[in-house]
Write a protein that binds this DNA or RNA. Structure first.
Lengths: 236, 236
DNA sequence: TTTTAATTCAAACGATCGTTTGAATTCTAC
DNA sequence: GTAGAATTCAAACGATCGTTTGAATTAAAA
């Protein structure tokens, strides 16, 4: 008994609130989810939220940070690995994309521990108009975005940075929708035979690489080599 | 005077409410926008909303329908034109995409009559978890989606329909984010030198075509011709 | 002008929201 | 066991929400 953790209620209550909030935020949205819905599902007292988190806004922030810290750390670690193993200091664009979108899709495949739920929530939160949500999401992504954009710039020499920026924006959009919209958007309802996220990765990666390597629009002829990395689009 | 419309208050009040609602829904989201905010900005009485629209839900629905009816009619007309002018009954995939995404981006360029505001609102509403919003959006898109998917199937013979479905999903995601996220998402804040929507169309079209024509992921070698339409990606 | 319908208006309704309070309870330390 | 901090709890707070009401005002019809 002396080795087991003391039966303090605090941490356990916090976790139950975070889990319930995550699921309900995903199901109904941030605004439409009340603290009473959360505390009821978590089987804790209503006042527990303000006791442990201070406010609903802080709770929202912790729901996202809990997962985003790990996700972005995995992304940076994957980028480190890619750059370390780069032949001749030249990193393939496809490897950079895999380092960024791979960990996200991997988390989206985890249906056991709520990873899928969270990624669906995150995808739709990117466009949340709430000022405070946008602010802390921007802060959470600042470092990762800076590193990956720099890596893409280096891996695509000669391509204007602004074009890369736009295409990375497009890719984040396609990915977010692919994850968040699978069953959230009913437009394609009944059309997808398998919404299995594990089959999503190769499909999406192929699409993203095709988009990244597409000829530039407004500019003159650009050598294909500068937009290609010599590898087929059969992503991992 | 006899030729001018009678100075009835009704229609004018309706329009002012719809315009104010559209702008505020875009700025704060559907839930976070109260009827009091709307009627204050529209300079009409609070009860006018329930008098003219019945409920907030009906108001939301009319805000979207007012623009979507025209947008989707333009899309279908563009597809009709493309199919009519097709050489040998064979429609190029790029033409189908232009018929779908062109009118949307065109509307997104209209900053004078709120078209841009509406398209930003629409883009983020695609992932709204509200059940009733999803339902009427799905109804509004059902016919258009059916026609364009059929056109894509015909224009890409040999490509599994499920793959086309996924890629169309990816394309809608990239487009929605490109429009809705330009200044909604602060992740790229200060990085875009020009967020001019008119320059967005060629950029986006090139990206989408590149993604659509990318080699399939899980399947064996597919002849390039089946994914290409012989035209460069320098979209209109 | 008189009648009648359409529209606007100030005021209030009940419900729900996030948050706070202060006492009751549980755990930790001495 | 006792003191003291940590946590839980039922209850209430003020604010805001969408909606309704019924009278006042305006427009159209007679």
């Amino acid at each position: 008994m002396s080795t087991t953790a003391p039966a303090r209620h605090g941490p356990e209550t916090r976790h139950r609130i975070l889990d319930a909030a995550e699921a309900l935020f995903m199901e109904h949205g941030l605004d439409a989810t009340s603290l009473r819905m959360i505390t009821t599902q978590a089987a804790v007292n209503l006042a527990a939220v303000n006791y442990h988190f201070g406010s609903k806004e802080n709770l929202i922030q912790e729901v996202f940070q809990r997962r985003l810290v790990d996700l972005n750390r995995n992304r940076l670690a994957a980028l480190d690995k890619v750059e370390r193993e780069a032949t001749g200091g030249r990193v393939k664009p496809s490897k950079v994309l895999e380092a960024f979108f791979g960990p996200a899709l991997e988390l989206a495949c985890d249906t056991e521990h709520g990873g899928r739920t969270f990624m669906q929530l995150l995808g739709r939160t990117y466009t949340d108009p709430n000022a405070f949500v946008r602010k802390f999401l921007a802060e959470e992504y600042a470092e990762v975005l800076e590193r990956f954009l720099g890596a893409l710039y280096q891996s695509l020499p000669g391509v204007p940075h602004e074009e890369i920026l736009w295409r990375f924006h497009f890719m984040m959009g396609a990915t977010s929708y692919a994850i968040a919209g699978t069953d959230a958007l009913q437009l394609f309802a009944g059309k997808f035979d398998d919404a299995d996220p594990s089959r999503l990765l190769p499909r999406l990666m192929s699409f993203l690489l095709g988009g990244l390597r597409a000829p530039l629009a407004d500019f003159g002829e650009v050598p294909d080599a500068s937009l290609s990395d010599g590898e087929g689009a059969k992503a991992a």
